[in-house]
């Protein structure tokens, strides 16, 4: 386990809370202003692979939680030693009403489809993203479908149950 990185992070970002769920990961909770600099910092520190961006809908607290999961490509990185693969989980919270955040595509280029996905499924707007167009969905939904207040059963009743069965009318 790389204790050096934890200390370096704590020194560089005193406001970020660094915990650990198990031996092989760090969980860094930061405010949204310091996320971009944190990502650039840990990229230089060896976490050069953005595995995933995810989003959690905390509807009661009125917030979205963005989760960036990073890992080093090489196990024997000069900065990260040891045989275990270490993940770094970076969490930040943004307001739920009119959610917007900065894009990270200039740091990690592969964030582009992840941000498009979150834009489509949670309605989070990423400022500076060059191509924020729908990724998977065919229909337009009034509420993005992965939000907690999207009522799937009501939607199914309104849309799919309204398609009539084929009537076999003989003339």
């Amino acid at each position: 386990m790389n204790e050096g990185l934890k200390e370096k992070l704590e020194k560089a970002f005193p406001h970020a809370a660094i915990t650990s769920m198990r031996d092989t990961d760090y969980v860094v909770t930061a405010d949204k202003e310091s996320v971009l600099s944190l990502l650039a910092y840990v990229k230089d520190a060896g976490f050069d692979h953005l595995t995933l961006i995810s989003c959690v809908d905390w509807i009661d607290e009125g917030e979205f939680e963005l989760v960036y999961i990073l890992s080093p490509y090489m196990k024997d990185n000069e900065q990260i030693s040891g045989n275990e693969k270490i993940n770094l989980i970076l969490k930040t919270r943004i307001a739920r009403g009119n959610p917007a955040f900065q894009t990270v595509t200039h740091i990690f280029e592969n964030a582009e489809p992840y941000e498009r996905e979150l834009h489509e499924l949670f309605g989070v707007h990423f400022e500076g993203h060059k191509r924020l167009i729908p990724l998977f969905l065919e229909r337009a939904y009034d509420i993005p479908p992965f939000r907690k207040d999207f009522d799937t059963r009501r939607y199914v009743k309104e849309v799919f149950d309204n398609i009539p069965a084929i009537q076999d009318i003989k003339a």
């Binding site: 229909r139 799937t152 939607y155 199914v156 069965a165 084929i166």
Partner: peptide
């Protein structure tokens, strides 16, 4: 619809769109 009976993006009855 099977296990996707309340999914937002999966059709439920195929025979309503093609025979």
């Amino acid at each position: 619809g099977g296990m996707y009976w309340d999914s937002y993006n999966t059709i439920k009855h195929l025979d309503r769109y093609i025979p």
